[in-house]
């Protein structure tokens, strides 16, 4: 049983995907077509991209609830800036502004010692209010046609968002697993006081983590805005939950220290498959919301049972 649980921890998400795949293949004749699969993956990239940032945050022992607000902020700035300063500068500037939000999050968390949840929850409200203020409560259409390429274009038959996700995956994978900085994130999430004693600059590492989360959220904002061709201050309601679900379902430990980026990719695809299945049945958006919430609670439930079992095994003297 212990062995099974260890195995489940590693490949549980694959099992889920295989089951969902078999189910969908039987239910829908269209499922096994390239277009459908690419479409499902593209839908999945939204959550996955921000999931990369969230993996870092949770690995460092923190949390970020402000990602959906940052998506909206990016969207508003893009719609305002593109007509004035051109597409590339507008994108860069919008991303930089979002990163500054992350910097503020990190600063409040490390320097004022405020709980990350409360900080980012408050920041979400502030940013949402600010986005609405800047946009004067309106949605702002973008008329520069070229901008749409980012979100809807294709390269070698594969939609651009998937390429963006792949590039970010490689970058974040290298960052987390191959650079000293990434390993210091794990170190801090794993044992903060030991990391401090070992001479790591905890403040810097943490602030950068929140900057990176906001960075991924603003990338997501760029993609969404380019697809919608409109700046929407409240662009992604409920998106934070999706991101956190993907992160946790992907095997990143809530207690910090262990991040799983590949798991996040597959968890994102799995959720996207659920959405696809729900669309087949023809249910509304609310069921999607419900399903994400339930998947999260289910994942937590299984994790809770697993921990209880392992604790009981330890008392019985079974080597865990």
């Amino acid at each position: 049983m212990v062995k099974f649980l260890k195995l489940y921890e590693k490949i549980g998400i694959f099992i889920l995907i295989v089951f969902a795949g078999i189910f969908l293949a039987i239910a829908s004749p269209n499922f096994l077509k390239t277009d459908t699969i690419l479409n499902i993956i593209t839908q999945g990239t939204y959550g996955v991209i921000v999931g990369f940032g969230m993996v870092l945050a949770i690995t460092s022992g923190g949390f970020d609830l402000s990602v959906d607000a940052v998506v909206g902020l990016t969207s508003v700035f893009l719609s305002l800036l593109i007509p004035n300063i051109g597409i590339p500068s507008a994108i860069i500037l919008s991303i930089l502004i979002s990163c500054f939000v992350g910097f503020l999050n990190g600063l409040i968390i490390t320097k004022f010692g405020v709980n990350p949840l409360i900080t980012t929850l408050s920041m979400a409200t502030i940013i949402r209010g600010a986005s609405l203020l800047i946009a004067k409560g309106r949605q702002i259409p973008i008329s520069v046609e070229k901008f749409t390429v980012i979100g809807t274009g294709k390269l070698m038959g594969v939609p651009n968002p998937i390429w963006i996700m792949l590039v970010l995956f490689i970058l974040f994978f290298l960052l987390l697993n191959q650079t000293p900085y990434g390993r210091h994130i794990c170190a801090i999430g794993s044992n903060e006081s030991a990391a401090r004693v070992s001479g790591l600059n905890v403040t810097f590492v943490k602030i950068m983590v929140y900057v990176l989360v906001s960075f991924t959220a603003s990338i997501n904002g760029v993609i969404r805005t380019s697809q919608a061709m409109i700046g929407i201050p409240s662009m992604a309601p409920g998106f934070t939950l999706l991101v956190i679900t993907i992160t946790i379902l992907g095997g990143t430990s809530l207690s910090g220290g262990k991040g799983n980026l590949i798991g996040a990719v597959f968890a994102g695809i799995f959720i996207s498959m659920i959405y696809y299945g729900l669309n087949l049945i023809g249910v509304q958006y609310f069921y999607q919301l419900l399903s994400v919430g339930l998947v999260l609670l289910f994942a937590l439930f299984v994790d809770g049972l697993r921990k209880r079992y392992l604790e009981a095994a330890k008392i019985k003297g079974i080597k865990v």
Binding site: R183, H184, C186, A187, S190, N191, A194, A195, L200, G257
Partner: peptide
């Protein structure tokens, strides 16, 4: 640091 390898722990930072 439990989630780092022995070598990483020796040379952390």
């Amino acid at each position: 640091i439990p989630d780092l390898s022995v070598a990483e722990n020796i040379f952390v930072g």
